[in-house]
Design a binder for these strands. Structure first.
Lengths: 220, 220
DNA sequence: TCTTCGTTACAGGACATCCTGAAACATCAC
DNA sequence: GTGATGTTTCAGGATGTCCTGTAACGAAGA
C-alpha cells in the first residue's frame, strides 16, 4: 500500500484527482508526465489497489478517487509525510491558500472556516470527531442547507489539512458549503490544479456566512 | 519517503521501535526476520532518511526513532493506511487494548484516558490542538506532575490513534502519565512487542486518577 | 466502411532493489 | 594476545519494477 503511493507518477495522478474530479487516462498521463502506456499500467495498479474507480464514456475512460474515505486517507497520509519529510515552501501559494480536498475546501481558508464554525458553536469539536450543534442546524436551515434525512456519509467530519496541520471541515457539511460557495460564484475552480480562487463576491459571502474578514498573506 | 516505510522489513523494524525503546541492530534483524547484513543496510537507509538515530555503546549499536515527531508521523501514517487499506482484525488484542506509542499510551486505554481528561475539563480540545486548562494544572500539581518551565516539546498534543481512529494524549503530558503509571507498577511493558499490560494496581490507579471503571472487551 | 483517436495488452530491455556470501573492523571475554 | 561476538562493508546474483516499442481493441467521425 505504501508502495502504491510511493511512486512519483502515481502520486502525481492522485494529487490531480484529489480535487474530486474525474479525468481521462490520457489527461492524467500528461499531467503526471508519463507515456499513455505507462500511465495505463499505473492506473490499473491503483484500480486494483482499490484507490480509484473508473467509468467508461465513449472512447474515454474517466478515473476518479473511489470515495471520500480514500480521499481522506490520502490527505492524512500527505500530512504524515509532511510531518516527517520536507517542507511545503515550494508549493504554489494558491494551493496553500484554498484548494479542493475531494469535495470540500482545504487550505488556510478551509481551516479558517472550520475555526469560525466551532467558535460560533455551530460545530462541536469532541474528542471523537465533530458534530453539528442545535444552533448549527438552525443556522443551516436559514441558509436552506439542511442535511438530508437519510445519509450514508457522516454529516460533518474533521479532515487533517496537510498544509496547515489542523483540521478543516469534511463530510456532508464540507461538501455542501463548498458547493454553495461555488454555485454562488464565490469560489472559482482552477481546471489545472486543485486551487480555488476567491472572488470579491466570495469575500463578501465569507463575511455573511462565517463572519470572516478574510485577508490572507503567506507567512514566511 | 513512502518507499522507506513501504518495505516490509523496514516497516517491521519501525513497528518494533514505535514503543520508544532502543534496540541493537541484531535484535532488530531477528524481529524483522532478516539477515544481519540486510538489516544493516535497511537501518542505514532509515538513518539517512532521518527516521532513526543511533548510539554506539560497546560493540552494539542501538537504534531508536529520532524523536517524538517521527513517531507521531508514523502513527498518523498507520492511521491513514488503515483508512484506505485493510482491517485490524488480525492484530493481537493486547495491542489494541493498550500499547506504547513512542513514550505515551495508545490503544483503547489511551483513547479512554484522553476522553476522561477532556470530559473533566483538564484538557481543552480546540481546533488547533490540545491545551492544559487551569483546572488541569491544578490537578497535575496535586499529582506532583507539574510540567517543567522550559520545555522544548509541546505540553500536550493529540496523536491520532491508528487502531481507534480517534486521538490519544501525546506530548509531555502523555509521556508523564505513561511514566507515572509504569513506575507505580500499574502498567507492565512487554519486552517483545509494544503491548502494555494493566495490573490490578493499575486498574485502581485508573479510577483514582481518571475516574475510569476500566473494563475492556474486544468489540467484534 | 475506412480512418482516426483513445486506451489497453503484451513483448522487450534498462534499471533499481533486495538478498546472500565473504570479509573487514571493533569490542568484549578469557 | 587470542578467540568470539556484533556490526558493517563490499561484491555477486536474483528478483521486481518501470519504461518503451508494437500491436490490438473499441468508439467516434467522415
Amino acid at each position: 500500500m505504501g508502495a502504491l503511493v510511493g511512486d512519483p507518477v502515481r502520486a502525481g495522478m492522485l494529487a490531480v484527482l484529489m480535487d474530486g474530479s474525474e479525468r481521462a487516462a490520457g489527461e492524467l498521463a500528461r499531467q503526471a508526465g508519463a507515456s499513455p502506456q505507462a500511465a495505463s499500467a499505473h492506473l490499473s495498479l491503483l484500480l486494483d489497489g482499490g484507490l480509484l474507480a473508473v467509468s467508461a464514456r465513449g472512447r474515454h475512460r474517466y478515473y476518479r478517487l473511489r470515495d471520500a474515505d480514500v480521499a481522506h486517507a490520502i490527505e492524512t497520509l500527505s500530512f504524515a509525510a509532511n510531518l516527517a519529510g520536507r517542507k511545503t515552501e515550494h508549493l504554489a501559494p494558491a494551493l496553500k491558500h484554498a484548494r479542493r480536498c475531494y469535495d470540500h475546501i482545504a487550505g488556510a481558508l478551509g481551516v479558517a472556516i472550520c475555526d469560525s464554525l466551532i467558535l460560533k458553536g455551530r460545530v462541536i469539536a469532541g474528542s471523537d470527531g465533530f458534530a453539528i450543534s442545535a444552533a448549527g442546524h438552525e443556522w443551516l436551515a436559514k441558509l436552506d442547507l439542511s442535511p438530508p434525512h437519510a445519509m450514508r456519509r457522516a454529516a460533518v467530519r474533521p479532515c487533517l489539512d496537510w498544509t496547515e496541520g489542523r483540521p478543516h471541515i469534511a463530510g456532508w457539511l464540507g461538501a455542501a458549503l463548498c458547493e454553495r460557495l461555488q454555485t454562488a460564484c464565490g469560489l472559482k475552480r482552477n481546471s489545472q490544479n486543485r486551487a480555488l480562487t476567491l472572488t470579491p463576491k466570495g469575500r463578501a459571502l465569507l463575511g455573511e456566512y462565517f463572519g470572516l474578514e478574510w485577508r490572507w498573506r503567506e507567512h514566511a
